[in-house]
Design a binder for these strands. Structure first.
Lengths: 190, 190
DNA sequence: AGTCTTTCTTAAGATATCTTAATTTTTAGG
DNA sequence: CCTAAAAATTAAGATATCTTAAGAAAGACT
């Protein structure tokens, strides 16, 4: 598992093995069964989660009590409820495992301490955050340009891993359409 | 103008005056007349722009040649086409002044150099990028939950400065609705 | 294998939003 | 001030998407 972290970290910034060791020692391994929650509404998100293996979704409940999925994450992604984690305020969303999932948990306080000792880590997260922002802006653009049908094709094409590992009604939620309508779109496409 | 920068920077990280001077010396002042472009499609965005005074919009042309606005920025905001600036690839969007605007331009290469000398600056931009990401995620959530009518009320309420300084058809574009439909919504609301 | 739960499909009617095109109002430049 | 250009409004018809409700299919657990 430390190897996986090392490989991942060195994609962004070159770290010494000793640095990796020090940072790694601040990560806490946890496993969650399918459907278990990593975070629930109203609690403060204390961790940024690095997914070693598994699938996790971030979602909230709308006024009618329907789940609205805003993010998915799989192996080698970080996931957290940003607003809650960064500002240490109660979360409006849930984090839940879709499959059995192993994560490494990086707490806010450990992260702040590590930033002071390892400016490289700050650089890594600056770069990761930039990438997340770009991905998010791009997602908004795509949703702005495309009708639902195209969004679905796009999703299936660009994120081939996901369509298999995630039930269709969750994809519908992420694509911001109803499962019924997605079903109809899929029928039309044949 | 240096005072404005100093005040702004110190909101995020405490800098020495000498540090502010050094960073400030790498910023290039420019002014743009209303409707002038800071960046056009297909060119590489070399700068992150700090708006000293004015209003700027970021937009692209959709398949039908209609302008789709993805961001506004006013005094004391940074704006750039993230994807183009960070990755130094051709931009898919335009940056244009809506009013006469004064900006301070920070080039990608100057920024990289400054990061090496001043880790504090890296921290500041890490924090700014986190805030931008949170704002963007929140925007997506809002658009997901709200119908057009609520989005308009929300925009008017939360960004009171903007509704005055930006023409209505641009607000419509930002809200992802047609100007005709926005007009109808406004009528209904009385 | 059998039952309970979860997921997916189908269809009819309702609604939000867009399209087009014409008209009115406001703003900017000589 | 006057006129041309830009922006906002109005209305009718078209379309995408949702809602509700029911039934079919697939998966999970004894």
């Amino acid at each position: 598992m430390k190897e996986q972290i090392k490989t991942y970290f060195n994609r962004y910034v070159t770290f010494e093995d000793s640095e990796i060791d020090a940072i790694y020692s601040k990560l806490e391994e946890k496993t969650f069964r399918k459907k278990e929650f990593l975070l629930t509404e109203n609690s403060i998100c204390r961790y940024n989660f690095f997914i070693v293996k598994g699938v996790v979704r971030l979602f909230y409940l709308d006024a009618k009590g329907h789940e609205k999925i805003t993010q998915f994450a799989i192996d080698n992604w970080w996931i957290t409820h940003m607003e809650s984690f960064i500002q240490q305020i109660p979360s409006t969303q849930y984090l839940q495992a879709i499959e059995d999932t192993t994560v490494l948990c990086l707490s806010k306080s450990n992260l702040e301490t590590l930033y002071k000792t390892y400016p490289k880590l700050e650089r890594m997260f600056r770069l990761i955050t930039e990438n997340m922002l770009i991905a998010n802006l791009r997602k908004s653009d795509i949703y702005l340009q495309m009708k639902s049908k195209e969004r679905y094709s796009f999703f299936v094409e660009k994120l081939p891993g996901f369509a298999q590992r995630v039930p269709q009604y969750m994809i519908a939620s992420y694509l911001e359409i109803t499962p019924e309508y997605l079903s109809e779109l899929r029928r039309q496409r044949i």
